[in-house]
Design a protein around this nucleic acid. Structure first.
Length: 498
RNA sequence: GGCCCUAUCGUCUAGCCUGGCCCAGGACACCGCCCUCUCAAGGCGGAGACACGGGUUCAAAUCCCGUUAGGGCUACCA
């Protein structure tokens, strides 16, 4: 099994800080990595659940091969990019537990290089200046649409350039056809006739995405481009640009989009789009990583797994070609499996805010002690942190406890004598014998002596101990509550309801 | 309109490349039983799918063609 971090990465990281930023983009920084992947979100919002999965795939693939996983912010569209969005994405990745290698690369900072590439293509005849006015473009676009063909500018074969007129730089799509061998989709073929003469540089000289990705991926030494399949056609366009520039073409892997539970494209309508929405629903990072990875990727019958397992087997070819739907039931189940497997302080740190929320505020020491004791016993009863807080409620709620619903119905008149007897018996148990098994023996001795079923004492006792909140075995409830608290709750009940 | 991608239980999927081991396996959810002091958990069992139509073949979920249905792209967005 591979190490998550090659040792020399730490050395390289120290090196980064000392280098000017642009050097980072030369791709020579990570010479030891045969495999380099990247996640390249545009900072226009939060970290999307689909983006998170793509990032996860890129991350695992890089780790699998001892490669580097890089993060690049695609902020060439300044109007739509915000610093808050960038931070939200960084925070989302951090929470999910995906660590990128090296510094974050900002695409906008490499604009000079993008322009240089465009210039090189003009010089080599692979790109041209286009002086079409917006009206002329609209007309030509309409015409090409009607004729069922791609956009072509009348300037692609040159002409006498108007003085001082604004122009854009367009890519001159060559004749022929373009084939890529996508790791997920397989062989995909286009006729170049179907590609527009796309814009490389805007009229203000700023680079457009299609150019910037190619240049940046090349500069960063990206070997495997893993992204959403909404980019599939872009792979064809970009291959042409790589060829025009005379650069090596990376391996492409286009992963299908995720759909909502209803099979429709994921949208605001589905509510949970951002990673923190899932955090708020009580999922833990390890669980979400497992679910997201398993959604659209499989390895035999493997369902529950952690990072190290995935890291040892992940291959792009095992990603499914068809889009997958989100299934919250399964997500919860997998999350539950990971909650049980979590180190207990890890679980506690994620669960803390849910406990406090349930408690309507911070907990005191007594509550905290009881909670910590109870945690190992209730975790298997919950699939999300919200459920965990519900399951823990019986132990943290404060006296006097309000008894509600079905629980209240069990407090029939004949229960009073049982509760008084039990209070007496339990009072006699020594502090250091206040343990699940021992308590159970006392309870059983009582029902044997009285010749009654456990139900006769179980229901009312549980009612005054928990108030009707979910709870485990009765004797365990007693142990977890502690003798003093348990007896107190029984007294409260006796005083209030009888 | 043009180009491209996809299609196995309700859902996620295995199998498809290299036809026969598949009257299709696993997981979630669902139903039943067991356990039982509540609710869970756990154990056991059940129902449930090759989108449709043509081919090719002794044999097709698997190969080919078409149909249908979803989806993507078609910006001086990414």
């Amino acid at each position: 099994m591979r190490r998550i971090y090659p040792v020399n990465l730490f050395f390289l990281r120290a090196l980064y800080d000392k280098l000017p930023h642009l050097e980072l983009l030369t791709g020579q920084i990570m010479p030891n990595f045969k495999i380099v992947t990247r996640f390249a979100p545009s900072p226009t919002g939060f970290l999307h659940i689909g983006g998170a999965r793509t990032a996860l795939f890129s991350y695992y693939f890089a780790r699998r091969h001892g490669g580097a996983f890089r993060l690049r912010v695609e902020d060439t569209d300044k109007k739509r990019s915000t610093a808050e969005a960038t931070q939200a994405i960084l925070d989302g990745m951090d929470w999910l537990g995906i660590q990128h290698d090296g510094d974050v690369v900002y695409q906008s900072q490499n604009a000079d290089h993008h322009r240089a590439a465009a210039q090189a293509m003009i010089e080599s005849g692979h790109a041209y200046k286009c002086y079409l006015t917006p009206e002329e473009i609209a007309a030509e676009r309409q015409k090409s649409h009607d004729e069922g063909r791609a956009f072509r500018s009348s300037w692609r074969d040159g002409g006498i350039s108007p003085k001082d007129a604004p122009f854009v730089v367009r890519f001159k799509v060559p004749e022929g056809q373009t084939i890529i061998h996508d790791e997920v989709m397989g062989e995909v073929k286009w006729s170049n006739k179907d590609f527009d003469d796309l814009i490389l540089l805007r009229a203000d000289g700023s680079p457009v995405y299609m150019l910037a990705v190619v240049v940046d991926d090349h500069d960063m030494g990206v070997t495997h481009v893993i992204r959403g399949d909404d980019h599939l056609i872009n792979a064809g366009r970009q291959k042409l640009i790589y060829q025009a520039l005379g650069w090596d073409i990376p391996v492409f892997a286009h992963v299908p989009l995720i759909f909502g539970p209803d099979g429709k494209k994921l949208s605001k309508r589905h509510g949970a789009l951002s990673i923190d929405a899932y955090a708020d629903m009580g999922y833990i990072p390890a669980g979400l990583r497992n679910y997201l990875t398993r959604l659209g990727w499989s390895h035999g019958d493997m369902e529950i797994f952690g990072d190290s397992e995935v890291t040892s087997i992940f291959e792009l070819g095992d990603i499914n070609k068809a889009p997958a739907r989100l299934d919250f039931d399964k997500m919860a189940f997998i999350n539950g499996e990971h909650m049980v497997r979590s180190a207990y302080h890890t679980l506690l740190s994620y669960a803390q805010r849910f406990f406090e929320n349930k408690n309507n505020g911070p907990m005191n020491c007594a509550q905290m002690d009881r909670l910590i004791a109870a945690l190992p016993h209730i975790t298997s009863r919950a699939n999300t942190l919200i459920e965990l807080a519900d399951q823990a409620f019986f132990v943290t709620r404060e006296r006097p406890i309000e008894i509600t619903g079905k629980a209240k119905k069990s407090l029939k008149p004949d229960a009073e004598v049982r509760l008084r007897d039990l209070h007496f018996i339990l009072s006699g148990v020594k502090q250091d014998a206040w343990l699940d098994q021992n308590i159970l023996e006392h309870l059983q001795a009582y029902i044997t002596k009285e010749d009654i079923g456990f139900g006769k004492i179980g229901a009312p006792l549980r009612a005054c101990l928990t108030g009707g909140a979910p709870s485990p075995d009765l004797s365990l409830v007693l142990e977890l509550l502690g003798q003093e608290e348990a007896l107190g709750r029984i007294e409260d009940c006796l005083n209030t309801y009888f």
